[in-house]
Structures are given as C-alpha cells and as structure tokens.
Design a protein around this nucleic acid. Structure first.
Lengths: 185, 185, 185, 185
DNA sequence: CATGAATGAGAATTCATTCAT
DNA sequence: GATGAATGAATTCTCATTCAT
C-alpha cells in the first residue's frame, strides 16, 4: 500500500467513526503514519481528500463487482452474480459501505465525485436491458429498476451494519431471489 | 409554529443544504429569527439540537404515515396504504427525507435518537405478521422484510431527490406492486 | 434578613466557592431566591454588587470586632481583646474571611471599596499609640506594626481554613501572647 | 527565555493587573508575542496555564530563598537569612508576590498546584525544629509557627505593594527581629 | 416591583494550512 | 520530500443586562 492509499484508508476509518469535522488533519496524519505536510503533497486540501476518497471507494466498488463477471451467462445468472458480489463486498467492508452511504447526500461531496457513482452500472444496465428485451423483466426506466433492486438489497446490509439484524450467507440468496421476483415479469 | 419548531426547521434547512459543520449556530439563529442565546434555552448545545431534530422528524414521519390508517383493510391494502403514505411524504418533504437519509449513519446522531427510528414500524410489523400468518407473504425475519421493501421504495425517492429520475404519481403504484411481488408468496 | 442581604450572602457563598466569573447572575438570583431583575434594583451591575459585598463585609468585621470593646482596659488587655475578637470572628465565618482574603488584591475590587478596609483600625490605632506612649510597645510606624500583628494572626486562620492546621480555642491565646512578645518593648 | 516562559510571564503580568477573567487568551498571546494557538501547544487550556503559573512561581520562590543558604549557621542566623531572602524577593518581584497572594484561596487554583506551596519549607522546618530542640524557640506545631512568622512579614510586603507603607532595607531587619522576639523563648 | 426569556458581544478553543528546518 | 510548530480565522457557548409581561 503506497502512501496515498495509506492516507485514504486512515481518512476512511477516522471519518466513518467520528465524522469529517471531528477528524482533524493532524489525526489523519498520525493514523496514516506521516506528517501533516505530506498529506498536502497528495491532496490540495481536506475537501479534496474527502472527495477523492469517495471517488476512490466508488472505483474500488466497481472493480470488485465486475471481477469475474461473465457476460455470457443468462440474465438471471448475471443478475444474481452482480448483486451478490455487491452485497458480499459491502458486508465484508463495513467502512467502505458506511462511508458511501453516509456521504451519498452530503454537501461535503461535490457533484463531480458523486457522479462517478453510476459508473459501475454499465454491466448492470446491460443485464436489465437484456432482461427487458427478452421479456423476462418488467418494463420501465432501467435506472429506476436498478435503484429499486439496489435499495432493497443495500437496505439489508445497512440493517446488518447497524446491528439490527445479522445477515447470513444463505439468506443472501433468498433476498436476491425476492429481488428478482420484484423485477421479473 | 412555536420558537422551538422555528429553530428545528431553520436547522433542518441549513444542515441539509450545507452540512452540520458548515452551519454555524449564528446562522441558524438568523434563519430562525432569534438571538443565538435563545437557541440555548431550548437545546443545551449544537449536538443536542441536531439529535432532537432527528427525533423530531422521526416522530413526524411516524405520525404522518399512521394518519388515516385502517386496520380493518386486507393485508395487501394495508401494505399499499402504508408504503404509499411513506413515499408520498418523502417526495413532498425533500428536506425531511434528505436529513434522515444523510444522518442515518452519522456519528453526529447518537444511538438513542436513532433508536426511535423503528417506532413507527408497529403498524408495518402487523401487516407483515398478518401476511405471513395468512401465507400471503414469504416467511422469515419481519425486520428484514420490512427493511427490504423500505429500501427498494426509499431508493426511488433518493434517486428522485438526486435528480437522477423523476418519480410520477402513477409510477409509485407500479413500484409498490413490484415491492409486493418481492414479498408475496 | 432583607432581600439586599439575601443577595449579598448568596453572592458571598457562590463567589468564594467558584470565583466571580464562574458565578453567573442567574445563579446568584436562584440562590438568593429572587429573579435576576430584582438584583438590579439593589445593585446597578455585577461589579457594583461585588464591591458592595466587600464593603459590607468590612463593615460587618468592624462592627463585630468593636462589639463590647472597653476603652478603659489596659493596653495589653485591649490588644488581646481586639485581636481575639478578630480571630474568633474569622474562624467562625470562613466565607467572610476567605472572600476578604481572596479579594484584597483583586483588580475586581475598586480602590474605594478597598480603602474602607482600614476603618476598623481606629480602636487598634489607639491601642498601639497608647502602647508606644507608655513605652510598652516598640517604636515605629503604627500602620506597619498593626499590619505585622494582623499578618501573623490572620495567617493562622488562613492555614486553618486551608485545612493545613486546626486552630483550637486555647492555642489562640498562646499566639496572641507571641504576637504581643513581638511588639512589646 | 523560552516560549513557555514568555507565555508564563505575559500571563503573570496581565492577570495581576486585570484578573484572570478580564485577561483574554488573545491578549496573553499578544503580550507573549505568539499566536493564540501556540499557547495551546504548551498548556492544554487557560485553567492549566494559570495553575502552572502558580506552580512555576512557587518553584521559583523556593529556589530563590534556598539560594546561598548555609546550614552550618546558628538557628537565629538561619532564621534571619531565610526570612530576609523571602522578603527581599517579594519586595523586588511585586508581580510574583501579588499573584501568589491573590490566588492562594482562589478556586481557580486547584489543590494539586496549591500543595506545592509548602515544599520550600523544608529548610525553614529545620530551623524551627533546631530552635525548639535547643530550647531557643517556643514549643508547638512547627507549621503553625512558620505560618505565624511568615504572616507577619508577608503582611508588611503586602502593605508595601498596596502603597499603604514603604518598606526600607533597614526596617526589614527591625521586623525580622520582632518576628524572632515572637517565637523565641 | 418582580420575573426570567431573549439578546448578542465577547471569550475559549480548535484546526486547516503554511513554511522554516 | 518530509516534518510538525505556529498562525489566527472561525466556531461554539456563556452570561450581563434589558424589558415585555
């Protein structure tokens, strides 16, 4: 892990725990094991650091979800594959998940960084498009349907990380099936 | 509107627009049309103000959703009624919605205020319980199923308020039907 | 006790315990069992209140010390009487003593109130003057000698109220005798 | 003089002149020729600053009084030496003296800092102990006797710095002799 | 007269950012 | 490049004083 990533990860951990404004640059420096000045070699200021962190995590998320993805599978198989990848990732990386959730609406994240949020949807777009073309899935705006599915599944992760429920590996499949029931024709 | 609510509403508006830490108490006072000191007569400090705002909105949400609710209706009718009420409320009150979403995970909200979040679920609980008893709905943890449904629908509101999509009255029914398809047997 | 004295005594207690600036007018009002506005009927502002308290205590001190004083007694008898009166008073009224000690030098007390400090010395002045005239006591500036004696005895009260020592009734006489040894020819 | 001492001395001067609460940190910073933030590198907060100042002056006092002290001298010589050193120091450093006097009882000084007050008494203790052993001085609690002597002499310094009297070099000896008369057998 | 809510100036403290080393 | 002490603007919070009731 290079110094830039050290800084990003230290920032992630501290910000999720204490919030942006309760996390001084000095503490980030300490946690990243550098001096404060060094941070300013990689990021022009605190705001940029936080925004780049958002971007960094979104990119990471996309990469992980797309990993091992096989375009040749059936619509339903791809549907299950992608959503399962996402849930698994978010369950295994609470900090990543909580940061992204918490700052989705935050004015601390500028629109440019936020926009990147939709990049990973390309594969998903295709699945839903194919699903509609093959009459397997309900008609309508694809962005809306993806949001709909995503919301239901992410919601479970949210409850899990809030300690209201404890999601098990086997229940994931059940809920992905339900998500499919919602969108299928 | 009494002074306490004036302050809460001014706080809501400013915090959603600019974030907690970019909203000085002095600006809240100005927006609420009081002196700064008056705020401290109602709330011991800024943290408490934000937490009470969270609590206040959760209470408001519960009240609005439960309004006009008829326990005698069928499971499906109650399902539709409650979720529609929620979506309509969140679509009509973007500030309320964005605040609650944004601070769900925030370390700025303490667990006590957060806990209140689940209070309004009593009616929903009943619907899902009845649904399972009558074999109309899939088995499993009710909290999980409510989270699942809620997530899918809230997600649409989220996209709407992010200007990615524009939800119309008629599409709401379509998505509530899909949410039903997900949970029904 | 009239309201003015209620306020003065509440002020005394709170200020000795917590200091002037850590004692808000609102707390004084509460302790004096009045509203804040009432205080401003008796004292134009906080500074005046504190200064009048100083003056009030100095007057009280003078009155108590002079009480039962008999000018016809011998120099030594009067010396013992007055200093014993003073020590007894200061031992029995820790708050009075601590306030006067603490604010002797304080810039919070203006010179006019402070000046009053020497009023009660009239009787003492006479004792020392008579003592010098009768060649019983050492020559020199009377203010200095009174200060000298006063310092030694007050110091014991100070140690007592600081819990470093515990002065007993019988030891008072011993130290007044020593104080006499210091000034006698 | 290092920055820490610059800050302590600026604090001393301002606090004696205007009192703790009328001395903003910003003014201390200006007087110490630093930024406000720098003060907080040396002292965690204002209260700590004042307490450390008390401790600093007590330590300074001890050091100065003990300077050049010769344990081999007679009891009386040592008695005269130590008290003269103390008076001379307090006469030459009005700020040190007035600060220590003013805050002896102040709730602004915590017991820990105050406790240090008695450390310098070790040499004095010995003098009084030897004096009693050699039957030169009156019997009784040594802490009380030291307080007694100290009080009488300090009182003169107090009057001097209050401009009620003007102590001269030659009169010091007179009063130390009187102090000796008080304690001698 | 008495009350105590409201005001807002003023203080302590924090922390992003700079820059001498 | 890296460091972290120093800066001082900005923020939270307090509380003396006023004044409508």
């Amino acid at each position: 892990m290079n110094k830039r990533e050290q800084i990003l990860n230290a920032t992630l951990k501290l910000i999720v725990q204490k919030g942006i404004e309760s996390t001084p640059m000095s503490e980030i420096a300490k946690a990243a094991d550098t001096g404060m000045g060094a941070i300013y070699n990689y990021f022009p200021n605190k705001e940029a650091l936080v925004n780049e962190l958002y971007f960094y995590l979104k990119t990471k998320e996309s990469a992980i979800i797309a990993q091992g993805y096989d375009k040749e599978l059936s619509v339903k198989q791809r549907f299950v594959y992608l959503w399962k990848k996402m849930i698994t990732y978010f369950l295994s990386e609470p900090l990543d998940f909580m940061f992204l959730e918490q700052f989705y609406y935050s004015p601390a994240i500028n629109p440019k960084a936020k926009h990147h949020g939709s990049l990973y949807l390309k594969d998903l777009d295709e699945v839903y498009l194919d699903g509609q073309t093959q009459q397997l899935m309900k008609d309508g705006d694809i962005k809306e349907w993806i949001g709909f599915t995503s919301g239901s599944l992410v919601s479970l992760v949210k409850l899990h990380h809030s300690n209201y429920i404890s999601i098990q590996e086997e229940t994931i499949n059940k809920y992905i099936q339900a998500a499919w029931d919602a969108v299928k024709n």
